[in-house]
Nucleic acid binder design. Structure first.
Length: 608
DNA sequence: GCTTTTCCCGGC
DNA sequence: AAACGCCGGGAAAAGC
């Protein structure tokens, strides 16, 4: 037993590498704790291929470091304690350890309190990095931790023996977790983040399971899409050459001397090819180019689309397939964004093209299995109706009406009806007015002004201005809600979602700058809808995971307001009902004024 | 030569 | 491109 003076605390730690009295005592001690600090040292960061070398567990006073290879088949007593749902596991970056415990030992490390997630929650809007354990140990406890030692494990293989410093620092990795949690909880309470904190912590195991499950991708279908994109790109390029080669010449391979991927080269080139209509062009972005009606521009936009398909969604994407599972395991971050939405990376599964061929390439991977895709319909607008209690909107949702058409008829003062509503010969009425109303409904929630609406809906500026003012006039509850909400945000220097208190700090903005002030105002208006939707989806994921336990079904993906579950075909109907009920149930935890609806499908592939 | 930033575009 | 919110990624350009 090594005694170490640590910041006025007497802390003892012990290395356990064999069966016997010490091991028994350690397990017995841990089993008496209400919360256990837990950490693992692993051979790398991949839970599917890397191995756990050490498990550290303990509290402020006492820590144990278990040698996994030495204990091997005798880990069960320890794992039983760690899997005990009555004991909270305090972990820094718990998703990482959760996945290793799940994959290597078959246990679910839950419930967890994650000191990294807690810190991110507290600092949303203030910073995006600096959440490592040594950062916060220094910040809250003034403890300097030596993190270089962690790298030394990466060179190791399973079964190697450890140095004294390696073991000591592994023990220290769990010694501060209880104190950190206490300190963070003081601030969580101070800022009213108790509720959202519980939601975030409970979501962690669901995300861990989801990442481990992964998504199967049909390589043949995917590559077929790439081949088509390559052919279309060539066609677009030939068309581009017709316009640009006469001016810029060709290289020895017959390609134009212009790099069509280079905005810097393109901007002046477009001006000389297109002439007058492109005179004031200041960017080659799609939004700017769309204003110009010219065959060269059409060819360029087609080229760009195909280039994107090939570079981002082409064969390189398949390199993410894990050789062991044959599936793609994206990294989902539940708290990187300022609004609480998930981000997804390596690869990003949240921006796969909507085009059918791309979604259809994601399959269940087995003829006996299905993918269930369910999404909330019109969720952000429902949240706005719920929060503002706007009676006209609420009535539309209760009646299952068409919000865009009905709002359109209110704003324009004329009826709007879809052709064919009253029988096959019904020509409809003013149906073209639905689109601008839809743009306005969506845009208003993040501060769209008349200028943008005019562009978006192809309206004269005066008409757009009229529409915007008609919106505020006709839906006064929404105006009242936003006005009060924005005023409070500006006063508090933070924005919150009323559902769970989720917070985004707004300090650090120059509010004397009108542009920046407008941006902050828009962020305030948009936040409750985005954050509310994110929270509801997280609750849905947590509920679904619980109800799928022990069944042949797993969550495999989520895209903001959408959840994808893989399951055996024989129980697909049953699982579908669980997913739908949990999604609606999750929304009902927060929304009391507006009914919620979901749309879903059971298919062999990811579908919309 | 390597890394960071900018521009652009895919999603909700 | 923007007086429209939130992301991640690829290629080019810029910076070191």
């Amino acid at each position: 037993m090594s005694d170490v003076k640590q910041h006025k605390l007497m802390s003892t730690w012990k290395f356990i590498d064999k069966l016997g009295e010490d091991y028994d005592k350690a397990v017995r001690f841990l089993s008496t704790l209400l919360s256990i600090g837990v950490d693992t040292e692993t051979t790398g960061s991949e839970p599917i291929t890397d191995k756990v070398l050490l498990i550290s567990a303990g509290n402020t006073d006492t820590q144990f470091v278990f040698d996994v290879a030495k204990l091997e088949s005798n880990l069960e007593p320890l794992l039983n304690v760690l899997a005990n749902p009555q004991i909270i596991k305090i972990v820094h970056n718990a998703k990482f350890d959760y996945k290793f415990f799940r994959r290597s030992f078959g246990i679910a490390l839950e419930p967890v309190f994650d000191t990294m997630i807690a810190e991110m929650l507290l600092l949303k809007g203030r910073k995006l990095q600096g959440f490592a354990l040594d950062d916060i140990a220094d910040k809250y406890l003034g403890v300097k931790m030596d993190k270089d030692i962690r790298k030394s494990f990466l060179k190791m293989v399973y079964g190697d023996s450890f140095t004294e410093p390696q073991l000591y620092y592994s023990a220290m990795d769990v010694a501060y977790l209880h104190k950190l949690r206490e300190e963070q909880m003081r601030f969580i309470r101070k800022h009213g983040l108790e509720k959202v904190s519980v939601i975030e912590m409970a979501t962690i195991p669901a995300i861990g399971d989801m990442e481990l499950a992964g998504m199967f991708i049909d390589k043949v279908k995917w590559l077929k899409a790439e081949e088509n994109a390559k052919a279309a790109k060539l066609t677009a390029m030939e068309k581009l050459n017709e316009f640009f080669s006469p001016i810029y010449g060709k290289d020895m391979f017959g390609n134009c001397n212009i790099n069509y991927n280079s905005p810097k080269q393109l901007l002046p080139a477009i001006k000389s090819v297109v002439g007058k209509p492109a005179e004031g062009l200041s960017s080659t972005a799609e939004a700017a180019l769309k204003e110009i009606d010219h065959p060269a521009i059409k060819a360029l936009l087609a080229y760009r689309e195909k280039e994107k398909r090939i570079t981002t969604y082409g064969s390189a994407f398949l390199e993410y397939i894990n050789p062991v599972t044959g599936r793609i395991h994206s990294d989902f971050s539940q708290l990187y964004t300022d609004t609480g939405r998930f981000s997804s990376a390596n690869p990003n599964l949240q921006n796969i093209p909507r085009e059918k061929v791309y979604r259809e390439a994601f399959t269940s991977g087995d003829p006996d299995y299905r993918l269930i895709t369910v999404d909330y319909s019109g969720m952000e607008l429902r949240i706005l109706a719920d929060l503002s209690k706007e009676p006209k909107w609420i009535q539309v949702f209760i009646d299952k009406g068409d919000l865009h058409a009905i709002n359109g008829s209110i704003l324009y003062g004329v009826p709007i009806r879809k052709p064919g509503t009253n029988g096959p010969t019904d020509p409809g009425e003013n149906y073209h007015l639905r689109q601008p109303a839809k743009s306005l409904n969506f845009g208003i929630g993040y501060g769209m002004g008349p200028k943008k609406l005019a562009r978006e809906a192809n309206l004269p500026f005066d008409k757009a201005r009229e529409l915007v003012s008609a919106f505020w006039r006709n839906f006064p509850s929404i105006k009242k809600f936003f006005d009060a909400h924005v005023a409070k945000c500006m006063n508090d220097k933070c924005v919150r979602c009323p559902y769970d208190g989720r917070l985004r700090w707004l300090d650090g903005f120059d509010l004397d700058n009108p542009k920046e002030q407008a941006r902050v105002r828009n962020m305030c208006m948009n936040f409750p809808m985005q954050a509310g939707n994110a929270t509801i989806t997280k609750r849905a994921l947590t509920r679904i995971r619980e109800h799928l336990m022990g069944k042949d079904a797993q969550i495999v993906g989520t895209v903001h307001d959408e959840i994808i579950v893989r399951t055996h075909k024989d129980i697909a109907d049953e699982i579908y009902k669980i997913v739908v009920d949990d999604m609606i149930g999750a929304a009902k935890e927060f929304m009391f004024n507006v009914p919620v609806e979901v749309e879903g499908k059971i298919d062999t592939c990811w579908s919309k």
